[in-house]
């Protein structure tokens, strides 16, 4: 109880939290599925799952091959592995305390492969606006992530400061980059944990200068009846779970259509 309250307090204050999985078995299955899908595409024999993911760059060197791999396994992970259900199950207590029991989930979680020195990290951005500011983002590394192998994030206060600076001096790139250097925090997230963050926070990644590949998933959840944002809800979201009461309400409405 105290742990849960501390999580909610931190999440509201900073806009993010790193949390351990409630159900590690769900994560382990998902990680194995991702490894199997990758190595099946690469036609390479599998070994220890952690090493296989950390060392995936030994089997695919070009950016084009990495993109091809990512695109090939993304639908498999979404459909066969039911990634959004597994991720929700793995972090259910924390996610439910944020979004409630009636849940919309991103239909297809994103798969990210960031090999050492790969020249295209994720630029600084924030999901909302465009996405709903009532969404939580789950960033789930399938390997131990630290330093430049990880991602960076600006907490609520730093995001607000960055926005203020940009509004006052929209062309001052140097000042903005200075603020990023000072405030952006590379998060250490070991496998078995996830970074949960509010969709309105600035975040991104750098070139991975470590010796191992980052393999991570990211996906989004929100309350079924939360404001939508600007993206097509049918393309990006699906109903993950509903309460008994909501099912009664939906059944009532449906009966008026049929």
């Amino acid at each position: 109880m105290a742990d849960s309250q501390a999580f909610l307090r931190d999440f509201e204050e900073f806009g993010y939290c790193i949390v351990p999985a409630d159900d590690r078995a769900e994560l382990d299955q998902l990680r194995t599925d991702v490894r199997d899908a990758l190595y099946d595409q690469l036609k390479v024999k599998t070994g220890d799952v952690r090493n296989d993911l950390d060392q995936v760059h030994y089997h695919c060197e070009s950016s084009a091959e990495i993109d091809r791999l990512r695109l090939a396994i993304t639908p498999m992970i979404a459909e066969k592995s039911m990634a959004n259900r597994r991720i929700f199950a793995a972090f259910q207590s924390k996610l439910t305390s944020l979004v409630g029991q009636d849940v919309l989930a991103q239909r297809v979680p994103n798969v990210v492969l960031q090999p050492p020195n790969h020249p295209t990290p994720t630029e600084l951005h924030r999901d909302a606006p465009a996405n709903s500011p009532y969404e939580v983002v789950v960033w789930l590394p399938l390997v131990d992530c630290h330093d430049s192998k990880s991602m960076y994030i600006l907490n609520r206060e730093s995001t607000r400061t960055a926005l203020d600076l940009h509004r006052l001096n929209p062309n001052d790139v140097e000042a903005f980059e200075g603020l990023l250097d000072a405030r952006a925090k590379l998060v250490d997230v070991p496998y078995g944990s996830a970074l949960l963050f509010w969709s309105a926070l600035f975040h991104g990644s750098q070139v991975n200068t470590e010796s191992e590949t980052r393999v991570s998933l990211n996906t989004r959840y929100k309350h079924l009846f939360a404001p939508l944002g600007m993206k097509d809800p049918f393309r990006y979201f699906e109903i993950l779970q509903t309460t008994e009461l909501t099912r009664l309400g939906l059944s009532f409405q449906r009966s008026e259509d049929l």
């Binding site: 079924l224 809800p233 109903i239 409405q253």
Partner: peptide
Amino acid sequence: LLIEDKVIRSLSELEEMLDFLNVINAVR
């Protein structure tokens, strides 16, 4: 539905779709 990559052939598929449509309508 092309963009949403869905095909509705059965009553259960229709009901699932209507539930989501009704949610979106209620929110909007």
